[in-house]
């Protein structure tokens, strides 16, 4: 920015407005005044002393505008219904699904408390649904059918893996503490038993999602798990032994491997997420 300022004579002439100034001079002066506070203050002083007529006119206009400006100024700070960060992690479309997840967790806890131990053997129902519990939220996180603004979102710069991971994180932040508390309350399972399987399922859903779409992948996995758990339980009256073994703590390396594979596949296909 230039350190040169307009001369006092120029400002005087401009303030009074009687002398015809060349158009280019006026133009240059106004351009300078827009960016230079000291010169504006000299102009203001000048108007006050030299041109009382203009000062009066400006005051009248201001008095007329003031009520409207006040009204506009009051309306401007918008009533904020929700903090801005919430919508950057969750879409309103996901809320019912997260609520459903919480309800399912609560029901599993209830079942855990009242169900006959013979049905589930030594596996707690919470433990059986824990691996696929985050999938409901994940399915809703990037879904054409469940998110009304999906078409708009899909064309924006943030669409793609970063946004998907953000929303998945939000789902996990809601679901995992719920499970943690549940496991602690019932005392039937340790965090290690369900944490890795549920993370592994989530990463697999995201990885498969790059091929068939996240919603389809998540629902597919959840249904598959349901079939594996529920159908034998229905038929035989108890949860199959093999399944109970799968969720034992000594199977953790297997789940860890699945998690690593899922994460690896997500990283390898990171660009496929931008047009899902």
């Amino acid at each position: 920015m230039s350190t040169d300022h307009a001369s006092m004579r120029l400002i005087d002439e401009y303030a009074v407005g009687d002398v015809t100034m060349a158009a280019d001079t006026v133009w240059a002066l106004e351009a300078h005044l827009e960016t230079c506070a000291p010169c504006r203050s000299r102009l203001a002083a000048c108007v006050a002393t030299e041109a009382p007529g203009i000062a009066a006119l400006v005051d009248t206009v201001r008095a007329g505008l003031e009520p409207q400006l006040d009204a506009a100024g009051r309306a401007a700070p918008s009533r904020r219904h929700r903090p801005r960060w919430v919508s950057s992690w969750l879409t309103p479309g996901m809320t019912p699904w997260l609520a459903m997840t919480v309800v399912v967790t609560l029901m599993a806890l209830l079942l855990d408390a009242v169900a006959s131990p013979s049905f589930f053997g030594d596996a707690s129902p919470v433990l059986l649904i824990a691996p696929v519990l985050p999938l409901c939220g994940v399915a809703a996180s990037w879904s054409r059918g469940l998110d009304p603004a999906h078409e708009l979102t899909a064309s924006t710069a943030r669409a793609g893996l970063p946004l998907l991971l953000r929303r998945t994180t939000a789902v996990l932040v809601v679901v995992l503490p719920g499970l943690l508390v549940g496991g602690w309350l019932t005392g039937t399972m340790t965090a290690a038993q369900w944490l890795l399987p549920s993370l592994a399922f989530t990463s697999t859903a995201l990885a498969l999602g790059s091929v068939v779409g996240v919603t389809r992948a998540a629902t597919g996995l959840a249904v598959a798990w349901g079939v594996v758990v529920v159908v034998p339980a229905w038929a035989t009256g108890h949860v199959p032994l093999a399944l109970r073994l799968v969720l034992q703590p000594d199977q953790l390396p297997g789940w860890g491997l699945l998690l690593a594979l899922g994460i690896g596949a997500v990283i390898a296909r990171r660009n496929a997420y931008s047009t899902l």
């Binding site: 918008s78 009533r79 904020r80 219904h81 929700r82 919508s87 879409t91 309103p92 479309g93 998110d147 009304p148 603004a149 999906h150 078409e151 708009l152």
Partner: peptide, 10 residues
């Protein structure tokens, strides 16, 4: 589609 509960500005 849009979020019905959002204000225009939001």
């Amino acid at each position: 589609g849009y979020y019905k509960r959002f204000t225009v500005r939001e």
